[in-house]
């Protein structure tokens, strides 16, 4: 790892100013950044440690919303009683992510900045070509080992998968990222690779995530996060789904449905086509399975990741049906 200078920010404003300087990066839990610095992917000149800032780790849950401070730890949010009861998908996405130790380190804001596990991206010494690291250098993954790569939202420049769990739940429930005064919907915060895979987030140098806000809703309250993987734990998703549902008074007709996918796309993937196909309909297994296929409309595989196209709709269908059962 290259050496860097280290400073502790005394305030949010100081952190923003420091982070705006060339070569500076914000350091929170470090579970992505220190890892990538060791890989030679991140080469910061200055790390601005924000973990000691006060007042940014709150978790406030009301009828209207949950507002989670950027420095709240993943593990704490997962175990928070009101998050569990009002936003079960968020809690489940969190506790199924990484390991208990990493969840004690990683912050909610930092988690949104988590980067892909693409082995080519992570290995600059051996694979210099990576459009995400070096725009225009090419993509080593295409034609390589693609078992863990995205099937949705890819481009000719990049097929790297977004590996996180939390943001999948967030995008399903229209969460908003607070960048100090300004706010960005989570769905817009994550960018498609297109021709600029190096730009992953709608955040500029000098900006800092201060909180995320998740609107409360009946569908968030009745939600789940289903994560499928070869290993039982401590593994990234082969495919996952965050699903929330609200029924009409009859208890059968779907009033509101939220569906988002993880483990299959270049960003947390909201599947509105599935939602639209089922809203207003009576929940019925065959209809759910048929509609779930819309989740992977337009998907393209690179051989070894083809199974994700088969798997993802099944995960979506199971999650929707599971939420229906608990009526």
């Amino acid at each position: 790892m290259r050496d860097f200078s280290y400073l502790r920010a005394a305030s949010v404003d100081a952190a923003r100013q420091a982070a705006a300087l060339p070569g500076a990066m914000l350091l929170a839990g470090g579970t992505t950044l220190i890892d990538l610095a060791k890989c030679g992917v991140a080469e910061p000149e200055t790390l601005v440690d924000i973990t000691h800032l006060k007042g940014l780790n709150g978790i406030e849950v009301s009828e209207r919303s949950a507002i989670i401070g950027a420095l709240a730890k993943m593990g704490h949010v997962a175990d928070h009683a009101d998050i569990k009861s009002r936003f079960p998908a968020v809690s489940e996405a969190l506790w199924q992510a990484a390991s208990a130790q990493i969840r004690n380190m990683a912050t909610i804001g930092g988690n949104l900045m988590q980067r892909t596990r693409c082995p080519y991206f992570r290995d600059p010494a051996n694979f210099p070509a990576c459009n995400k690291r070096e725009p225009g250098s090419g993509c080593s993954a295409i034609g390589g080992v693609t078992k863990g790569h995205a099937v949705l939202g890819t481009s000719d420049a990049c097929i790297a998968m977004y590996p996180g769990d939390l943001a999948v739940a967030l995008v399903a429930f229209d969460a908003v990222v607070h960048l100090g005064q300004s706010q960005v919907p989570v769905d817009d915060f994550f960018l498609l690779p297109g021709t600029t895979p190096d730009r992953e987030h709608a955040i500029e140098p000098g900006e800092m995530i201060t909180a995320i806000e998740i609107p409360g809703s009946a569908s968030a309250r009745r939600s789940t996060y289903l994560k499928i993987r070869d290993r039982q734990s401590y593994e990234f998703a082969a495919a996952s789904a965050a699903v929330g549902i609200e029924f009409e008074a009859d208890g059968r007709t779907i009033r509101d449905l939220r569906v988002a996918l993880g483990g299959v796309a270049t960003k947390p993937w909201r599947a509105r086509a599935v939602e639209d196909a089922l809203k207003g309909k009576v929940l019925e297994p065959d209809a759910v399975r048929a509609a779930s296929l819309l989740a992977v409309e337009g998907a393209t595989d690179h051989g070894a990741n083809h199974y994700k196209i088969e798997l993802a709709p099944r995960v979506v269908a199971r999650a929707i049906l599971k939420m229906g059962e608990t009526a």
Partner: peptide, 9 residues
Amino acid sequence: ERVLACLTL
């Protein structure tokens, strides 16, 4: 709290 010393400066 349990954390990983390898990813902590």
